[in-house]
Amino acid sequence: MSGWLRKGSQGGVIIIWAIGVLLVWEAAAWYIADVAHVLAPASKLPYLHLVLQTMLDHWSTLVEQGSITFGNSIVGFLIGAAVGIILAIVMSLSRAVELTLSPYMIASQMVPIIGLAPILYGIIHDPSLSRVLMAGYVTFFPVAINMLRGLQSIKPEQEELMRLYAASVWTTYTKLRLKASLPGLFAGLKLSAPLAITASIIVELMGAPDGIGILMLSSLYYGSSQVYMFWSTILISVVIGLIWFLLVTIAERLITPWQPEFRPQGRSEG
């Protein structure tokens, strides 16, 4: 019964969902501005079409500043992911290393990034490097923890099987542990993809000279005249975040096709 529903649904649901959001947004903006007559309605919720108009008008600025922020955050994300993967592998190889590193890793996540960003920027004084480092900083932890859980998720019998077939340590690691860790790795990457972008923006709010965060901040300072610009920066951030999340999801489907949620057929009988 759910065949056509499930097959057609993915694309269809997204379209319906998007149209729904647009309609609700416009309706709410109309209510705030023209029905409730709220003071400075655009700063509460501006008309979407006016925001889109602003985006078109200032397209080149937005792209320029946006690419600075997102370029840096993606570099940071990739570096953070690499560090997270290496940490997970090292920790999976030695219980002693795991026990030694875990407290530091957990403590590192207790430092609020809103406090860390200005300190970091104060020390290195390089906006690009700060953005990269902060994006990497928020990325490595979810990646390391989730991948480590995956590396440790194998069953004793699976290891016994490899031992019975006299598999080398390397073969057992690559054919068993690494494979078993991939779903966890992608869970970590999906968690940290949006975090990396937020972290870069926070660096900018705390004093970088350029980037989408600066546009956001300056349009906030200049009040109602810049309100559409402010919303444009938010929209751009959301869209880039979604695109990045989507890319990770596509990679996940290609690299881990065995996961049940990617498979259209149901369980067979027999």
Partner: peptide, 20 residues
């Protein structure tokens, strides 16, 4: 064992989920 003269079947199938 090193000559791979054993086959084993456990109570759980112990298949590798990522393999067909």
């Amino acid at each position: 064992r090193l000559k791979r003269k054993f086959g084993i079947v456990f109570q759980s199938p112990t298949l590798f989920e990522w393999r067909t």
